[in-house]
């Protein structure tokens, strides 16, 4: 037992890779078998992560979810700000500026409108729920943009970790709802051609949500929606901890 413990502790980042890998494998299997691809495996995996973090926090009384369990300490490094920012920036690789031109004016407008609108809605809900601290309002608003813009913004402007967690949860709700809701509302919002698919991707922005939602609607539309959605998180990370934060600070 001691032997296992010492190996796990000494190789904690490697243990994290293995544990996350198994979690994702189980999640994708469940997405495929239980939801027939309607909910993307990544959303299930993130939800499992949040559930595990809850039990980790309750069990240890710590503030870092599963990472406070000694044997899983590597999760803290793997999911920490440094690795997260590194991986997010890497997703910008391969983005062709020419693609954005193809998306046209409506595509560009949809990206900015999507980020700002989701942010405003999220921030308004935070205020309705009684938050008055600009950093908290901004972070929750950013979480309504995507589950990645929330923590990136929250950590940049120094929000509390409970607020950052809420922002991840809000982004996850958004992502899952886009996956499930898109085929339902597709007819009503005219989502049946490449142009509207690009606008849709730019407005929603959650890449996994957009890809899964469009796939369930009409697989031919996926690349168009994904094209604009790719830019969305980047724009969110740029605007969240800057312009949007300053606006909230000025108004609250």
């Amino acid at each position: 037992m001691e032997l296992i413990e010492s190996v796990f502790l000494r190789n904690n980042l490697i243990v994290a890779f293995a544990v996350v890998g198994i979690t994702i494998w189980v999640s994708y299997l469940a997405a495929d078998k239980l939801t027939h691809g309607r909910i993307h495996g990544s959303a299930i995996a993130i939800a499992l992560g949040l559930v595990a973090a809850y039990f980790g926090g309750v069990a240890t009384g710590g503030t870092r979810g599963v990472a406070d369990i000694a044997l899983l300490g590597g999760i803290g490094l793997m999911g920490g700000g440094m690795m997260r920012d590194f991986a997010i920036v890497a997703t910008a690789f391969g983005v062709q500026l020419g693609e954005l031109k193809k998306a046209g004016l409506a595509g560009v407008i949809s990206i900015f409108a999507g980020v700002v609108v989701s942010f405003v809605v999220g921030a308004a809900v935070a205020i309705l729920f009684g938050y008055t601290d600009p950093a908290a309002i901004t972070t929750i608003g950013a979480g309504a943009v995507t589950y990645i813009v929330g923590p990136v913004t929250g950590e940049a402007i120094g929000a509390s970790d409970a607020v950052i967690t809420l922002s991840v949860a809000a982004g996850l709700v958004k992502s899952i709802l886009v996956m499930i809701g898109t085929p339902v509302v597709a007819g009503a919002i005219g989502l049946n051609n490449p142009q509207s698919a690009m606008v849709f991707g730019g407005l929603m922005g959650t890449t996994s949500g957009v890809a899964a939602g469009l796939a369930a609607t009409d697989p031919k539309l996926v690349p168009y929606g994904a094209m604009t959605a790719t830019f969305y998180t980047g724009v969110g990370c740029l605007l969240g901890p800057s312009v949007l934060y300053f606006l909230v600070s000025a108004l609250v």
Binding site: L48, G49, A67, I75, A87, Y147
Partner: peptide, 11 residues
Amino acid sequence: IVVAMAARQNV
């Protein structure tokens, strides 16, 4: 990494 990030939140 996002999954690991979710797992280390103060849920």
